[in-house]
Design a protein around this nucleic acid. Structure first.
Length: 415
RNA sequence: GUGGCUGUAGCUCAGUUGGUUAGAGCAUCGGCUUGUGGUGCCGAGGGUCGUGGGUUCAAAUCCCAUCAGCCACCCCA
């Protein structure tokens, strides 16, 4: 039984399902390219510290969701990437690309997280990803958000997606606020949920994510981060918001939006939909000005996002069938060899050709129909003798003859 | 890790208060049509009823356990 069962949380992307998947990726890549993002491909696994140092020692991803193992040397600790950002930043620093900024890249591929599967969540899943490294100012934030919005529009899902945005401020603002927040929360002591009490000291901002009713009550009156941003942080956030408005990108400021990963600063955002059940975040990201330094590189600002390909693919629905082939239908043994030669010629001339390995005429026509062929090219003894083929229109069944010689030219309209 | 729901043919599902040989649609294959598909008609193959135990004269049906899938919590794309 288990011999044929795929690993929990993995899925076979069969041709039919892969079509949507590919459509999402191709569309995203093409739009990103228009904004000057070049595609790159970081490794699927990295040394564990690349992720553990950057994402936060206490984050759920690092503490319980990573696929980590020693490699065959028995010494190095390897982790299958749970996200793109850290790996891309590592690649940036490893290759000393500091003089290549702004470094604008697009990436896509599989990610791995050990979680209980549910709708829109798998253990192997796929993301599209866009990053701008090396730009300190809010223009990068605005551009990164613009590409995201543009991709959603191009995929025709933008109308059911809303952009929520917040500022986490710079390090100074965050530290100042953190003290205020802890001071506010501490008196509640046992009233807080167990999770929240744990978070109180290592990551109090995350208490805003709590679903516990009592926590929500308590947090309602808590001091807000936005009221504690220093001038620079306020100005920065204001500039981002103005830039979005100026480009006609709708957004909602969500003071409770706190991303789960430690490396975020300033801008944090999520494109969210109601149409996918509980896992509605379709693209999310933010600014990570300290990340590259944390990795051991030179201080370099960055901002980017990742989008869930499976989630987006569910939203785009069934679309576009592949182009229609012409089908070759040999009748009788002699015609088979001839059909293969014709097929080869047509394929070299750019045609998509369907040619079965076996079966009589009836069977082959049925398969041609199933393959959604535009025409069937019938080749029997009669045709061979006369040096022609019979073209059957698969829509209306009408038939006419064409010379075998120079067939590709006669069929140009079906290419 | 926790909770809820669901496991019957390749797929989607019926299956009555436990009762003979477990059914249908779709899909597949064959025939009506030995040179003509997509619509029609006829037929065929295909099932350890998730798995293991228990109750009973008798279990797809009731009980227990277990596995898997889905959905949700947590968290995230």
């Amino acid at each position: 039984m288990s011999g044929l069962r795929p690993v929990r949380g993995t899925h076979d992307l069969l041709p039919e399902g892969f079509r949507q998947h590919k459509y999402v990726i191709d569309t995203a890549c093409e739009i990103a390219e228009r904004y000057g993002f070049d595609e790159m491909m970081p490794p699927v696994f990295e040394f564990t510290h690349v992720f553990s140092r950057t994402m936060g020692q206490t984050s759920d991803v690092v503490t319980k969701e990573m696929y980590t193992f020693p490699d065959r040397s028995g010494e190095e600790n390897i982790t299958l990437r749970p996200e793109f950002t850290a790996g891309i930043c590592r690649a940036f620093a490893s290759n000393s690309l500091y003089d290549q900024v702004p470094f604008k890249v697009f990436a896509c591929g599989p990610l791995f997280r050990y979680e209980r599967p549910q709708k829109g969540r798998q253990r192997q899943f796929h993301q599209i990803d866009a990053e701008i490294i090396g730009v300190k100012g809010p223009q990068a934030d605005i551009e990164v958000l613009s590409v995201g919005q543009h991709i959603l529009e191009e995929l025709e899902v933008a109308k059911s997606v809303t952009l929520r945005i917040n500022s986490l401020g710079d390090a100074e603002s965050r530290e100042f606020y953190r003290e205020k927040l802890v001071a506010y929360l501490e008196p509640f002591g046992e009233d807080l949920s167990e999770d929240s009490r744990q978070r109180l000291h290592h990551n109090p901002l995350r208490i805003f994510d709590s679903k516990s009713e009592r926590d929500i009550e308590i947090i309602t009156d808590a001091p807000l981060l936005r009221d504690h941003l220093n001038y620079d942080s306020q100005k920065f956030f204001g500039d981002v918001c103005d830039g979005l408005s100026g480009r006609g990108i709708a957004y909602t400021i969500d003071p409770g939006l706190v991303r789960g990963l430690d490396y975020y600063t300033h801008t944090a955002f999520e494109f969210v939909t109601e149409s996918l059940g509980a896992q509605g975040t379709v693209i999310a990201g933010g600014r990570y000005d300290g990340l590259i330094e944390q990795l051991g590189g030179r201080p370099t600002p960055g901002i980017g996002w990742a989008g869930g390909v499976e989630r987006l693919a569910m939203m785009v629905g069934n679309i576009r069938q592949r182009r229609r082939p012409v089908a070759l239908v040999p009748i009788g043994g002699d015609a088979c060899e001839e059909a293969n030669i014709i097929a080869q010629k047509l394929r070299k001339a750019g045609f998509m050709v369907a040619l079965d390995y076996s079966g009589g005429m009836k069977r082959r026509l049925a398969r041609a129909n199933k393959a959604n062929a535009v025409i069937a090219i019938l080749i029997g003894d009669d045709e061979l003798k006369r040096g022609i083929v019979t073209i059957r229109d698969m829509e209306n069944g009408e038939q006419h003859e064409k010379p075998l010689n120079n067939l590709a030219n006669h069929l140009a309209q079906y290419r």
